[in-house]
Every structure is written in structure tokens, then in C-alpha cells.
Design a protein around this nucleic acid. Structure first.
Lengths: 350, 350
DNA sequence: CTGAAAGCGCTAACAG
DNA sequence: CTGTTAGCGCTTTCAG
């Protein structure tokens, strides 16, 4: 491990001059050619700064903590950590992922761990979009929220969230563009999911915009976002619809969509010929194990976490900057579960 | 942030005494009651050691690096990092995950990053079980292999791998125990997968043990582990089997199994009534989106990575210990895709 | 049994 | 323009 000391000796100069040159604080302090020569030999000798020394001196670790709940089978975890990793590396930081169990004091403990490592900032991620209280972090440690917002009206902390409304609007618009007019929505009846209201709002907005405000949208909420609840809800919706069944369904989640597909098949409907469906989440493998391959709205965890890290770095480097609410769009992933609507007259002929 | 200095002042003693007491190096150096009192007040004042200072002094960071390829949708990534995280935390270390792209110099770069952070050890993980060369890491930095083995006969480095043979043996034995006798195996025809041979070996061994060496096992290899290749291979197998079709199939992977299921259904077979299948991997969501819920062998990434970290910590703390090859068992996950075999006479009656 | 002092690699006043 | 110096928090001889 070559130190500044080594390169100073090698050049017959002092450590502080080397330090100045290496930190590009040499404007009018070290003459240009010398500075250049220092940097060159540093490179040559394979100098890498000792981060412990730096940290000790500057109270800066060039490390960022990602604190999040980790259930062993969270489908979004890899995308989240991956995006955060990449962004951190890009910015010259390292990412430390600190898992937090669901035990009571776990979050405080995680924060403690992070602080002890002297991280320069913390990203708090939720396991799904939710409202949460501001964590007990000293004012001196910048932090941002990922996939969650603080209780209280105005963002007092930078928050990175998905644009659920836009995503569901787009999905519904896609169905409308395919000629469907009788479109239902299978939501979820659990207020812990903030997304619940946002996705319904996007759905309604698209319908209103394309069909006018006259149409009463067909909406049934499943008990939870599971496959079986989705299945049940779909049956309910078809029964409620009676003789005018929907030709397309927008679903709260991919799992909901899967349940819906099972219900539809049980009723003798072919997918996507008789019923088009769009899911939400773009859970990995969903597209592979689902047939027809599911058209769905992606929850862009990778982009979100990358953005969260970028925002955090910004706040680390500009401590006085204002908190922001960043909304990242949810792209619609076109696959095979949506078909153009067939006018009902033609359908009867077959 | 309270320092040793603070607690020394508070007690009117010197820093070195505190250090001695805190590090339990006080045997016959500090009198017992004082040492105890020091530890008590440290606790009270909320002392936490400054890791930068420690690292600087001792060249130890209490950090471990996990270096691995990360494709954004590796289904095993969360389990792997999760297990490693937990084990590292348990051992008082922190885990730094360093992603490595598939670009040429990427691995060297990742190692560089790790070394610069002064990690105490490195876990190298492969994206699937494979043989690989020893990475260019200084002798002073302990490392272990996860899900890979070194080229060369004897392990020169500690390796943690899954017991693929045992897993497939158990799966096949389960099928046999359910009364099946005509059992086929859909493998994969790609030698990059070391698992390929091991799984086939387990399959053959179970058959031999239960059925004797007379039976020629029905084996078809798919071109790759994808769904479509599995589907094709299954058709091929059924054609080859002719009038004596298998009543159960063991599959190289869950995706293979999914393809197999599609092929079977296309041939009018009901699952699991007419055909039992067992997969391999226990990929998340596979059980949910697969119907019937897939009985499969789990690739225990969480346990493996935890074990790798434990081994690494052991090597960090006992540098002269011998390299080991650790094999962790693959449990069979019982779900709904296996049914007891029905004697062929009864089958015809229905 | 306890304390003083040096030093890990680096930065930042401050002198020169 | 360059060098000297002190000090970040801790461990570890070495004296006392």
C-alpha cells in the first residue's frame, strides 16, 4: 500500500505538498508543473488514498447506507440494491446495505450501525409505497426516503416515489386505444397500500378523459393483493357486470392479474381473445410463467433507487439544498395479454 | 460521539487504561473492579468505537466484501445478499456488496475497490455453479468461493457449494416413494452448467438404488434451461417413450419444469393426475404462478452465502486454517405437483 | 496496576 | 510556492 509519504520521499518533497496536489487544491499554492509531476508519479506508483485515515480526519467515509426491510423473497430487492449500488459507485461512494428486521427496535439499531460506520448519508427504503415517520437521525446526517413519504403535507425530506397515477393512466389509456370501452378495475381493499388510491385515480382519469364523465367505472376491490383474492374479486366483478361483461381488466398487481386470469378461464373466457388484462409491478418471472405473457406497468425500482442515491449525494455535497419530491415514471411494458377489442356483433358470430 | 477520551476524563483516569478494559486485555493489568466500572460507564455514556481510528491503527475494517455478477433480474440475488448480510452482522462485520459487470477488467476493478476499503476478506460468488480461476487477490486478504470451485483438483481455497447430487437424489427418491417407476429426466445440454452432471448423477443413483441397475433411465437434454427448450425436450421424451410413457418427470430447473408442464398439457395430460413433476431451484414466485404448485428442490442460496461468510470470518480470525469444501444440502420442497402413481390398470378404467 | 507517549495516513493552518 | 506542525481516536509499548 503506497502512501503519500512514499511519493513525497520519492520526489524529495513534503507530504503536504503532495496532499495539496492530489486534492487539486494547488491553485496558486503549488506550481503547476510540480503538481502535475506529483499526480503523475502517484499514478505510477499506484497510490490509493487510505480511506480510514481520510475518514478519521474528515469524518467522512464516502459510504452511503441503504436501510431497508428485507424479507427473503421481496421481488424488488435486487433491483433496488442494484440501482443504488450503481449510482453510488458512479458518484464515488460505496453502498452499505443494512437490513432491518421487523422487530421493534430494529430500525434504531440499523441507524446506529450506519452512524457507527460514519456513513455520509442514508437512504430509507420502504418495502412498498407507504407513509412513514421521519427516522431518528441526527441533523448532521443527510437522508432521503425511497418509496415512501413523510407524514405531513410538505416534503421535509427528499422523497423518491413512483408515479403510480401516470402508470395506471397509461395502462388504461392503452386498453382504450385498443378499442375497449367496457374496462373494469380490480383494486385492493387495504389502506396500507397508498398505491391503491393512486392506481384507481389513474384508471378513473383515463376513463373520464376518453369516455367522458358519464360512464360509471366497474370497480371491485380484492381483499388483498394475492392471487386467490384477485380470483375471487374477478368472479364478483363478472357477476356484477351481468350481461355486459368487460372486455378488458386493469389489475392492481401482477398477482391480482394472475388470479383474474384463473377466474376468467374458469368462466370459459380465452385470454387475450375474450379478455385483455394489464397488471402492475412487472414482477420478475411474471412474464415468463404467465401465459399469455402479461402486459403490465413496471414499478421502476432500479431507477428509483438510483435516483434516491443521486439525490442523497446531492444533499451530502450541498447540505443547504431544499428537499424535493421526485416522481419517477412507471413505464408500460407491452406484452401479449392485450388484444384489440372486437365489436360485440362480431364476437357473437363466432 | 463519545470517545475513550471522554470516558477517561469522566473517570479521572487515562485513555490507555480505558482501552485495556474495553478490549478485555485487562487480565492482571487493570484491577478487576476498575475495569468493570470502566465498561459500565462506557455503556452508560453510549460509547461506540470509532471504526476509522480502529481501521487506521489496526489495518482492519471489520468489513467483508461480497463480489458478484449482478444481472438486474437474477432470481437468487436477494437470497444471496440477504444470507451474507445476516451472517456478517452476526459476526460483527459489515457487508459491502460490490457488483461486477461482465466487462473484461471488471473483476480486477471490483477487487481494487474492495482492497481500497481495506476489507478484511472477500467472498467471490458466481451467478451459477461453475468452475473458475483463483482471483488476483493479495495473499494477505482471505477469500472464499461461493457457488463455484477452483480449477484444479484439491480445494486451495474454501468453497461453499450446494449439494446438487443429494438434492436430485432426494427428488427422485420422492417420486419413487410415491410409487412411480417410469421416471424420466429432462436435463440440459450445456456443459457450462456443472450442475447438469451432478443432477443427472443424483437421478441415476436414486433409480439404481430403488430399481436396480437393470432399468435404462429415460433422459432427454434440453438445449438450454429455458421454458421453451424444456417444452421441446418433453415432447421429444414422450415420443421416444412411445407406448410406455413416464408417469413422473424430474426436471433440471423450474423453468424447464414449466415448459414440461406446457408440453404435457398439450398432449392432453393432466397435472398432477397423469404426470408428476419435480423441478429444481425453487425460484421465487414459481410456486405461486405455477399450477399445480411446483414441488421442487431448493437451491439454498441464503444458507450458502451465510455459510460462506462464516467460513470467511473463520479464516480471517484463524489465518492458518485449512481450506475446506463445504457442501450445503438442497432441501426438497413438497408442494402439489407430485401424486402417488396409479397402477396402469386403474388408469385405463377411468 | 496505571499513565505517558508514539504513531497509524492524512489534512489544514500556519510559517517561512 | 513549499515545509512544519498539530491532531483526528485509537492501540501498544514502555516507564513508573
Amino acid at each position: 500500500m503506497v502512501r503519500m509519504r512514499d511519493i513525497a520521499d520519492h520526489l524529495g518533497i513534503s507530504v503536504s505538498t503532495v496532499s495539496l496536489a492530489m486534492n487539486r487544491k494547488d491553485q496558486g499554492r503549488v506550481n503547476a508543473p510540480l503538481a502535475e509531476r506529483i499526480r503523475a508519479t502517484a499514478q505510477e506508483m499506484g497510490y490509493t488514498p487510505n480511506l480510514h485515515a481520510l475518514g478519521l480526519k474528515l469524518n467522512k467515509s464516502h459510504a452511503i447506507a441503504l436501510i431497508c426491510r428485507t424479507s427473503p423473497d421481496d421481488p424488488f430487492l435486487s433491483a433496488m440494491t442494484g440501482g443504488a449500488q450503481a449510482a453510488a459507485t458512479d458518484a464515488g461512494y460505496i453502498l452499505i446495505t443494512i437490513p432491518v428486521s421487523s422487530a421493534p427496535g430494529a430500525e434504531a439499531e440499523a441507524i446506529e450501525t450506519a452512524l457507527q460506520r460514519d456513513v455520509d448519508g442514508i437512504v430509507f427504503a420502504a418495502d412498498f409505497y407507504r407513509r412513514r415517520s421521519i427516522p431518528g437521525v441526527p441533523d448532521s446526517t443527510p437522508f432521503v426516503f425511497l418509496d415512501c413519504v413523510s407524514t405531513g403535507a410538505n416534503p421535509v425530506v427528499t422523497e423518491v416515489i413512483a408515479d403510480e397515477v401516470q402508470g395506471s393512466f397509461e395502462a388504461t389509456a392503452h386498453l382504450l386505444a385498443a378499442g375497449h370501452t367496457r374496462i373494469g378495475y380490480i383494486g385492493v381493499d387495504d389502506d396500507r397500500y397508498l398505491a391503491r388510491h393512486l392506481r384507481e385515480r389513474g384508471f378513473r382519469a383515463a376513463l373520464r378523459e376518453h369516455l367522458g364523465s358519464g360512464a360509471a367505472p366497474l370497480i371491485v376491490n380484492a381483499a388483498d393483493p394475492s392471487i386467490s383474492a384477485g380470483e375471487q374479486a374477478a368472479h364478483q366483478l363478472f357477476e356484477r357486470a351481468g350481461s355486459e361483461p368487460p372486455t378488458a381488466l386493469f389489475c392492481f398487481s401482477d398477482r391480482t392479474a394472475f388470479g383474474v386470469a384463473q377466474a376468467a378461464r374458469a368462466r370459459g373466457l380465452r385470454l387475450p381473445e375474450d379478455l385483455s388484462i394489464v397488471g402492475f409491478d412487472n414482477v420478475e418471472y411474471t412474464s415468463e410463467f404467465f401465459s399469455p405473457r402479461l402486459t403490465t406497468v413496471e414499478l421502476p425500482h432500479q431507477r428509483m433507487s438510483a435516483e434516491a442515491v443521486r439525490q442523497l449525494v446531492h444533499r451530502i455535497e450541498h447540505p443547504r439544498s431544499d428537499p424535493l419530491r421526485i416522481t419517477v415514471p412507471c413505464p408500460l411494458i407491452h406484452r401479449d395479454s392485450v388484444r384489440p377489442a372486437v365489436p360485440s356483433s362480431e364476437r357473437l358470430e363466432r
